[in-house]
Design a protein around this nucleic acid. Sequence first.
DNA 1: TCTTTGACGCTGA
DNA 2: ATCAGCGCCAAAG
Length: 107
Amino acid sequence: MESTNFYERVYEIVRKIPYGKVTTYGHIAAYLGVKSSSRMVGYAMNSSHSISDIPAHRVVNRNGMLTGKFHFPTPSIMEELLENEGIPIKNDKIINFKDYLWIPEND
DNA sequence: TCTTTGACGCTGA
DNA sequence: ATCAGCGCCAAAG
C-alpha cells in the first residue's frame, strides 16, 4: 500500500477534478512536483482500474486529446462521458480545451 | 537485479 | 506549421 503512495497522489487530484472540467497529465505531475515525469501520471492512471472513484476520462494530454480512450472498456466511453458533462469532443480531442481546462491547486 | 515499457511533454530541425 | 527524437522515473516481467 505504501508503495502506491505516488499513485494515491495522482488519484487524489483526479478525484478533485470538478464536474464538467478536465486536466492534463502535465498539470497533475507539476502539482506533484514531478512535472518532468508526466508519463508517471498516465502510468499511475493505468492502475486506476482498481479504483472506481477515478474519473480518468477527465484526464487528457496537454493537447486536450483523448489519448487514453483506448484504455477504457470501450474507446467510446471516454468521449461519451466527457460529452455527458457538457464537454464537446471532435476528432478524439476536446473543443475549446482551454475553456474546460482545470488546474489542481492547494487552495 | 537488469531490462523494457509507457494514458506525456518539450526542444530542435 | 509539421515531424522526429530525447528525457523522466516508476512498475512489472
